[in-house]
Amino acid sequence: MTVENIAAIIALLNIWLFIKLFVLVLLFFYFVLSLIITRQVDLMNQVLGTRISPAIQTAVVFHAIAVGILFFLAVVLI
């Protein structure tokens, strides 16, 4: 294996590491956004409460959980 090949492998690894970090940071902020949405929907329901308010709140909580699971999947799979 030549020096050029090793350098190429290291460069490739670095690129993937950079991509992985970028994706994880992106997903982390996405998870934070989903938590903000959850909090805001709680406020929205206080401003205007209807019979389906609990269902909306539940849907938003499930959404945040799904984003959290995706984040951990990304940590494991990428």
């Binding site: 996405y30 959404h63 799904a66 984003v67 995706l70 999947l73 990304a74 799979l77």
Partner: peptide, 13 residues
């Protein structure tokens, strides 16, 4: 897989 899941989840958002 992660990209696909992200795509659909982002669409859901």
């Amino acid at each position: 897989l992660v990209a696909l899941l992200f795509w659909y989840l982002a669409t859901g958002t």
